[in-house]
């Protein structure tokens, strides 16, 4: 049981970080970014090239990944989403655009980085082994701790920085924020860049553990949507809670139900359906949006 809980906490910290960027973009722009998983993959590949191929320090690779993804995110918002949002009030327009970006990035990533699974050298050797009751390699512990630090850093940034406050104001009431002098275009772009950066950074962190391949963007997006739906779309604390809940459900389910075949996800999806029927806004979302 101890191992299942530790596995769940580790998975949860990864998942929460993945979901944060998605929920931030939704909160600011009411956009369901179907390309979130592809941004994660792109981040993984940039870290792979800088750290795995060029042999530069891992920290530098993570910084390069963060900067690149922030620029990619800013460009996507400025040149793609902003004109569409300006010209169309229909939500389907941004959904279609997001889906198109996902397909486009899938194709570009496959073209640039090939079809193979890629991996990088371990960033830390060694293993925590508590009498085989809890076994956890040090690099996973490090990545888990780093994920939690990034989550805390993100919360503090949103809480106390000027851009963070502006983005929260936008998320609460876009029109009121605009009337109070918040520059909507500027902070939407910063928010999208931040969301893309978070996706890229978690891709960069996890390439050291799980590697990366060009086809995993879609499944990552689906999981991220699940977490956001559990926690409540557009709510930061909800995304974090959703990530940890999904991670724990997966870990405990696989531990206790594995002998019955692959029913863990069946139960997770069934529970999600029942939960959403009772509370469609998620744990921390508001029913009115």
């Amino acid at each position: 049981m101890e191992q299942a809980i530790v596995n769940g906490l580790y998975l949860g910290s990864q998942y929460a970080l993945i979901a944060l960027g998605l929920t931030l973009i939704f909160a600011l722009m009411n956009v369901l970014n179907f390309a979130h998983g592809q941004l994660y993959v792109l981040g993984g590949f940039i870290t792979y090239v800088v750290y795995g191929q060029l042999g530069l320090p891992f920290v530098l690779a993570l910084v390069a990944t963060a900067v690149t993804l922030a620029l990619v995110g800013a460009a996507i918002e400025k040149f793609l989403f902003r004109p569409v949002i300006r010209r169309s009030v229909r939500e389907e327009s941004t959904m279609l655009l997001a889906a198109a970006i996902a397909f486009f990035l899938d194709a570009v990533i496959l073209l640039l980085f090939g079809e193979k699974q890629r991996g990088v050298p371990k960033i830390m050797d060694g293993l925590l082994n508590w009498d085989f009751r809890i076994v956890m390699p040090y690099d996973r512990i490090l990545i888990g701790v780093l994920s939690i630090f990034i989550i805390v850093g993100f919360i503090l940034y949103m809480q106390y920085s000027k851009p963070g406050r502006a983005m929260r104001a936008l998320a609460q009431d876009r029109v009121a924020a605009q009337l109070m002098g918040v520059r909507v275009d500027r902070y939407s772009m910063i928010g999208f860049a931040l969301g893309a950066m978070l996706a890229g950074v978690v891709g960069g962190l996890l390439v050291t553990i799980t590697g990366v391949n060009s086809g995993i963007g879609g499944p990552i997006s689906i999981k991220a949507f699940m977490m956001v739906m559990i926690g409540g779309a557009g709510v930061i604390s909800g995304a974090i809670a959703g990530g940890f809940i999904l991670g724990m459900m997966e870990s405990v389910g696989l531990f206790y139900l594995s002998s019955y075949g692959d029913i863990t996800y069946l139960i997770i999806f069934a529970s999600l359906m029942v939960f959403l029927a009772i509370r469609p806004q998620g744990l921390m979302g508001k029913p009115w949006g």
Partner: peptide, 8 residues
């Protein structure tokens, strides 16, 4: 991440 899958 296959750790939870392989643990049992």
């Amino acid at each position: 991440d296959f750790v939870p899958v392989l643990t049992p």
